[in-house]
Design a protein around this nucleic acid. Structure first.
Lengths: 220, 220
DNA sequence: ACCTGAACACCGTTCAAGT
DNA sequence: ACCTGAACACCGTTCAAGT
């Protein structure tokens, strides 16, 4: 089903790969969205919880891994923004993030609302960095922001021109990592629960996070 | 140029409104992206800095206003994700956010990297909540998440089912507001600059934020 | 029953041919 | 010079007609 090039996943391309008429696909799926959702969840099988490190490291690695899948398949990221994924692998990721947030000291509300942010951010970044470079436009693409900021009037935009260095600094991974820390700090700051300086409390009903999991919980 | 229905902005629709052939548009614009970018910046003229309240209130109101424009025009939000806007009105918003972040005590890096997050989040939310409801699907749309969570196995997803209440709580504006606070707390937490408990320092070169602006800074 | 070719209603972009 | 109709290369979805 999933061939090599998953970039432009359209009904007619899938049909071509499967050597069939494009109309036949509608026997198996409801519409394009349905196809994309199913493909995304299949891809998410590779996103697994790392078992080393503290809750924060594990959480960041998990979300980063989720973001990498989306960045490798921008079409899927676009879809994930429009329609809330609900496949088993996606729900498994949600479950693990919730467990880790609680382990980090987030209260119920912060964990519940925070998981949305933690998933939304890498999705948006994946869509954003889908450059779709046309071979000839390389120069334009690379220098657009640089030129833009350089040519601005310091009188009109004192902060933009003043912060030029920092606005352009940092590559993708560094910024992503920083952004995750911002979210985690913010989520915990809005939690009224016990701070994680105390020994991390056992999470009552939660089996998957309380005792260390032996392996990746799902391999599909 | 901008008529009433800005939902599905396509070349051919624009041409129809203008009573001309769709090919004629390419005399004035380079491609569809270009049209969308120009329309977005025109729409952003209505996003203005409020002059009442502390830096945090003003910043949140500004970003919320930006998000409302995008939520009213999901097509523009989608475009803003793919291609970095660079119109004068957009840059004005960036400038003001930077000034407010600094006023709040963010250091250079936190302000520069933070502004991206503060703009990315409402953009992603606007794309996300573009329901595009087909009249008959109302029931499905409203209950999809609810049913989903209700039917889950508590053994397999203890945290999701356990936090069911909070996962579904909060309407759009409340969640957006909470998310903005999360970002601001996180951004400030990662700042090494002087904390804002000190009297808010004057921003040296920055005229637009230092003394209160008389009106909306831009009306196009 | 299952599959499919053709058709319908759209897109964005290009370009030769008109005025 | 400027504009435009037609054409090209795509989409998603439907459906009558075939096997």
């Amino acid at each position: 089903m999933r061939s090599e090039g998953l970039d432009r996943v359209t009904m007619r391309r899938i049909a071509a790969v499967l050597d069939t008429g494009h109309a036949s696909l509608y026997v198996y799926v409801r519409d394009t969205e349905d196809v994309h959702a199913q493909i995304l969840d299949a891809l998410l099988a590779s996103v697994a919880l790392n078992e080393t490190g503290g809750w924060r490291e594990r959480l960041k690695a998990l979300v980063t891994s989720y973001g990498e899948v989306l960045r490798n398949h921008p079409e899927m990221a676009r879809m994930a923004l429009s329609t809330q994924p609900d496949g088993p692998n996606f729900l498994g990721i949600v479950e693990q993030i919730l467990a880790l947030l609680r382990e980090g000291g987030a209260d119920d509300r912060a964990a519940a609302w925070g998981v949305d942010l933690l998933l939304l951010l890498p999705t948006a970044m994946a869509v954003e960095h889908n450059v779709e470079v046309h071979p000839a436009d390389e120069d334009d693409r690379l220098s657009d922001m640089t030129d833009q900021v350089g040519d601005l009037d310091p009188q009109q935009y004192p902060n933009i021109t003043g912060l030029r260095q920092e606005l352009l600094s940092g590559n993708g991974p560094v910024r992503s990592d920083w952004s995750l820390d911002v979210l985690l700090d913010g989520i915990l700051a809005r939690s009224v629960a016990t701070r994680p300086t105390h020994p991390p409390r056992q999470i009552g009903v939660d089996g998957s996070a309380a005792h260390p999991p032996d392996r990746q919980p799902r391999n599909d």
